[in-house]
């Protein structure tokens, strides 16, 4: 039986600490230990991007990271992006432009898009599409997601 490791990280601005199995994936730490269920799991192979969160400001796939690897890090999840009445511009844009249907990929899409706009505040359509290559959506055909990201870029 493997031992446990203590992990401490700042999640959406609040410090969190827990004793966890080494094999606990970051996504399960966020969802099950901390109850932040906005980050989703859609595949096993780092392809779908539904689990995308920010680690020290950069988008990563939290299903391909051990919680232990994020020890000491700052994590931002969809729950840290905006609140009712004070949505993040990307959340507003996804809503306005119908950039979601079932909503399952949406938190990951928004987090990946935020990473793009941080690096490249005024992307063109091709850049948006390339930046989202690691996020799969089965509902929208991406048309309105791309439109939403471009609109959020315009708005900021």
């Amino acid at each position: 039986m493997a031992g446990s490791v203590r992990v401490t990280m700042t999640v959406n601005g609040a410090q969190q600490s827990a004793e966890v199995e080494p094999r606990l994936l970051l996504v399960h730490f966020l969802r099950e230990t901390l109850g932040l269920t906005g980050t989703h799991v859609g595949c096993d192979t780092s392809n779908c991007g539904a689990c995308t969160v920010h680690l020290n400001g950069e988008a990563i796939k939290s299903c391909t990271l051990l919680a232990a690897q994020a020890d000491g890090a700052e994590i931002t999840t969809i729950e840290g992006m905006g609140q009712e009445g004070a949505l993040h511009p990307l959340q507003e844009a996804f809503w306005e432009h119908h950039g979601l249907q079932c909503g399952y990929c949406t938190p990951g899409m928004i987090m990946a898009s935020a990473d793009l706009l941080e690096r490249n505040p005024k992307p063109n359509e091709e850049e948006v599409r390339e930046a989202l290559a690691g996020n799969l959506c089965r509902c929208t055909g991406y048309h309105n997601i791309v439109k939403a990201v471009l609109a959020a870029s315009e708005a900021s």
């Binding site: 680690l55 950069e58 988008a59 990563i60 796939k61 990946a112 990473d115 290559a133 690691g134």
Partner: peptide, 9 residues
Amino acid sequence: IADQQVRNM
């Protein structure tokens, strides 16, 4: 390589 998230890690 892969996608932005993978390149970040």
